[in-house]
Structures are given as structure tokens and as C-alpha cells.
Amino acid sequence: MEWVDDAIVLGARPLGEGKLVAEVFSREHGRYGGVVHAARKSQPILQAGNLVHVGWKARLSEQLGFFSPLELVEPHATRLLDDPIALTGLSSAVTLIRAATPERQAYPQLYDAVMVLIEAMPHTDVWPALYTRFELGLLSAMGYGLDLTRCAVTGETGGLAWVSPRTGRAATAEAGAPHADVLLRLAPFLVDPEAELKSGDVADAFALAGYFLERRVFDQRGEGMPDARRRLIERLGFAGRL
């Protein structure tokens, strides 16, 4: 059994002397683990968020297998070393993928979404909003996508401002007004990519995605939301970027 593909590094841990167990996320193969020999040489390559070209091989499909070749394509993590907040965002994104996706199942749209996010991270004013879109894409990939296309009450497609925490469906400002105390705010940029990004919109988007990630993904597995995400929101908040 074997395959070759480009993949995003999710992390690595030591395995005995001179070996690592690495985990990557490939467009065509999903989340895979494998043994890497020559740990000292490979460790700089296996920084979470880096793009690598890998081959995975095993005698039987159910075995852990090993990675060879393992070649660096884009050192995304290294390029963000001077931007601690972006590096925290990168860490949070790969941690969510690692925690939420089942092994060896392809999610090509999610892979494309995280690549768009990673490539946008040098642009300080852009990526936090893209990050929240990535989280909604993760929800959708896990089978829990929200319906933000039309109002669940009136069927209207314009003026959407709320989301039901029960159904994950949107509502217009007028239709949701009587229940505003229990509804989640819907940031305009999540519906209209051309909408002006205002103060508080990214915070609302984080709250929306986080509510459903926690209840529909992580609570179902008996796990809490990864700390990496909390640290990201804290850092963005301290920097006034929510």
C-alpha cells in the first residue's frame, strides 16, 4: 500500500531513538500518520503548518506505515516566526483539523480552505476573517454545515442577521428580533464576501463557529475545544483585531 501527495504537516512526536511519528493532512488522502527516520534531519521540516511532499508506504493498509520521501515544499511556519498571532492562528487551524477529522478520510474542500487561509496569513487585516470561514468549512466537512443562504422564517435571502443555535439556520434582522436574546449574531461578511468588515464582526463569527464546533463536534466526542483556539482568540482580542 502506498501513495504520494503534497500535505500539510499537523505535528510530530518522538518514537524511540532517531525516529518520529509524523501526522499530515493530504488533499486526496486526508489525515495520515507514519514513521519518519532520521529524526534530527526531518524535525525542521515537520513544523506544523509546513507544506511537504510525502510518500506513505506500508505492507498492509491498516499498519502505521512510514513516510518516504519527505520533502519541504513551503516553510509556512518558518515564515510566520516574526508574527506570533499568525503563528498562533496556524497552530489553531492544524490543531482543529487534527482533533476533528477522522483518519484516512479525504476532505478536499477542507484542504483547499486551509491552504487559502495559510497563504493569506502574511496579510494581517485579512486572515482572521478567513480563519472563521475555515472553521465553518470544517463544520460543513464534518456534516454539520450551517444554512446561511436564506431566512428560515420568511425565505428571504437578504438582510440575514441571526442564526438559530438549535437548527443552525439563518434569520433576517426583523424575523429574529423577538428572539434576539437567544440567537447568535451572523456577521455580514459570512454571507456577503463584499460586505465591509466592522469592529466586532470577527468576534461574532468566532462565537458562531465556536458554538457549533463545541456542541456538534467536540462535545459529541467527549472533548473540549482545543486550547490553541482559545489562545488565538485571546491574542486577537488583546491586539484589537476582533
Rank of each mutant, 00 (worst) to 15 (best):
V21I: 15
A152I: 06
G137L: 09
L160G: 08
I233R: 08
M142G: 07
R231V: 08
L136E: 09
V24W: 02
V94Y: 06
P69N: 03
R150T: 12
R40S: 14
Y211D: 10
A100F: 05
H53L: 13
A39N: 00
A195N: 06
V191H: 02
P128C: 12
L148E: 15
T101S: 08
R241D: 04
D82Y: 02
G18M: 15
A39K: 09
L186S: 05
A209M: 12
R31F: 07
G49M: 07
G176P: 02
N50P: 05
W56T: 01
E23L: 11
A180C: 05
M142I: 11
F206R: 07
A141D: 03
V126E: 10
V21K: 03
L81F: 10
A22I: 04
P75Q: 11
S61I: 01
L20E: 03
R221Y: 00
G11N: 09
E119W: 13
E74F: 07
E62Y: 03
L117F: 11
E28Y: 07
L190S: 01
L15D: 06
F25P: 05
W162R: 01
V35H: 02
L80R: 01
R133I: 15
A113W: 06
L130C: 05
R241E: 09
S140Y: 12
R166G: 00
R241A: 14
G159H: 03
E23F: 07
R231K: 12
G222C: 00
A39F: 08
L186N: 08
V4C: 11
R230S: 10
M142F: 03
